[in-house]
Design a protein around this nucleic acid. Structure first.
Lengths: 135, 135
DNA sequence: CTTTGTGCAAATTCTTTGCACCAAA
DNA sequence: TTTGGTGCAAAGAATTTGCACAAAG
């Protein structure tokens, strides 16, 4: 948890008990969790934690650039603590989201465009995961 | 509207008054509209139209492959009648969504992956649009 | 103290569901 | 008729808001 504390400081985020717990969860569970998943995972050990705080915390993390919000899931917002260039795959069947790291680096290049000032990219793939093919 | 009628048949979709009206709107207004935008645009001339029907209709269009549902907007589902390979740009300021057609064709290639059976890709760019830079 | 963070409850927004009625074949 | 389509009202799920209290400096 101390690591999370330090980690937050790198992004100029004042660490609180709640913020460190959320960041700790994100660092140790790289499953692109939803707000609810984070809340449900932490609330047993932090019974007073409120979902509002989880929302506030992730908004702050995104604003400070510590976490990336993913659009790949239409239902819920999902958060990724890995802010390096990589893509995602979402299984249509079970909804799980996985990282894809082995794309050609120039996939992530931002195109020049005279009508828009482009500052970021999100590459999403869809299909069926190994586990769901087996079933 | 007759065109929409024919267009729907290409995708084995039985045309009804409502379905043709929705498809006609999509074909003539390529703004990646939300359900609400479609509903609000059509309801003046179709006062009995219900939002449920708009939902049903777009689910059907997506299922039949006539329309693509976009994940780029976390708030609302957005629909694109152009199913050819292209990317999208979303303005962080005004929320408008624009097409990007001039990417290298191999951007849309689906990677081989032993853990997932990948069948589609969505490439999304984010930033500020021309109009919002001006303001 | 004073500012910032947290948490509860209520409100809002988007989407889905159940069911009755309507329309087309 | 029988099947499929439409539309209303209610339910459900995710997120946001307002405000009071707690914590940290």
């Amino acid at each position: 948890m101390l690591e999370s504390h330090q980690y937050l400081r790198q992004f100029s985020i004042k660490p609180s008990v709640q913020r460190s717990a959320v960041m700790n969860f994100l660092l140790k569970n790289r499953i692109h969790p939803t707000i609810d998943e984070i809340y449900l995972a932490l609330s047993p050990s932090m019974p007073t934690l409120s979902k509002t705080t989880v929302y506030n915390t992730l908004d702050l993390f995104v604003e400070k650039g510590a976490v990336r919000a993913l659009a790949i899931d239409e239902k819920n917002a999902r958060y990724d603590v890995d802010i390096s260039a990589h893509a995602h795959f979402k299984c249509r069947s079970c909804g799980s989201i996985h990282d894809i790291f082995d794309l050609n680096a120039n996939m992530y290049q931002l195109p020049e465009n005279k009508s828009f000032k482009i500052d970021s990219i999100e590459i999403s793939y869809f299909g069926i995961c190994e586990h769901c093919i087996g079933n």
